[in-house]
Nucleic acid binder design. Sequence first.
DNA 1: GCGAATGTTCAGAAATTTCTGAAGACAGGG
DNA 2: CCCTGTCTTCAGAAATTTCTGAACATTCGC
Lengths: 156, 156
Amino acid sequence: MTGETARREAAEQLALTLVGAGMQRMGARALAAFLFSDKESLTAGDLADELGVSAGSVSGAVKMVAQMGLIERIYVAGSRREHFRMRDNAWTTLYSRQHTVVDEILVAVQNGVEVVGSGPAFERLAYMRDFYTFLLDEAPMLVERFEQQRRDGSRP
Amino acid sequence: MTGETARREAAEQLALTLVGAGMQRMGARALAAFLFSDKESLTAGDLADELGVSAGSVSGAVKMVAQMGLIERIYVAGSRREHFRMRDNAWTTLYSRQHTVVDEILVAVQNGVEVVGSGPAFERLAYMRDFYTFLLDEAPMLVERFEQQRRDGSRP
DNA sequence: GCGAATGTTCAGAAATTTCTGAAGACAGGG
DNA sequence: CCCTGTCTTCAGAAATTTCTGAACATTCGC
């Protein structure tokens, strides 16, 4: 049977793997709740109920996930609460976001390249810099290609 | 002044950004030590000195970084200690490694796709699955292309 | 403006992660 | 075999992260 329980379990399971990938617990749980919900949007109260946590925790989690660009606030007429929903391009956004992390690493590596004299360390650092620079350059094209392919594929 | 101090500071700085990217502290510090060293190899003792931590911590850190495939044990004649050095393809390896994480996420997502009936949640989960599947497929080609480009470039 | 509903912040509690130090395991030389 | 130097394991200490609950802020309808 494909009940609410199975859905929740699947959501929690996904949240766990996201935590394993480095995401914070509550943010991951909130994100999974959005992913698995069939409602158009969720309020903070919905999330608190669904996840069984305090309003404070929800506030923090929503803030984080919103900052990652994965969900957005929407205005719902006649409702005083704030509604959130997943953004359409959440996953490509998330992928692109990782680049800010890589950027920071590159800055540190570049600094290293400048500090060490020529030698094995220099070679290693330069290689690392080149590889990550390459990835950074290529990533947008990858995303572009995915979207292209998706457009083509959905009209067979 | 390109002294030892500047080198260490640069190494610690890189370690910090790696921690920011989700790596564990001691593992990141050990990795940075390898990156920035001009020695052919480092022993656990070298690392303990360099990082100012206990043998136990070094043991754990080395184990982790080795498991990630970034360093390897090497045999040094006449030395009873275990020597480690960075692997040549450390960065491309690390990049590929992230796929195991993505794989786990995909398993959870696939499970979700099967559990939810058709509806918004299904659409979202299917999209996520497709995107990450695409990335997983494309990644090896990216690495390949980088290596190709590097070979060509280094013979101008 | 007032009141009610909702959202945010923050100090401290709780849980988790990380590090250490000491004990034990292991390998090689004598 | 034992001894020495080296590495690993692990229980507990220390540090860090995460969650809560209550006080405060904000918004909207009236």
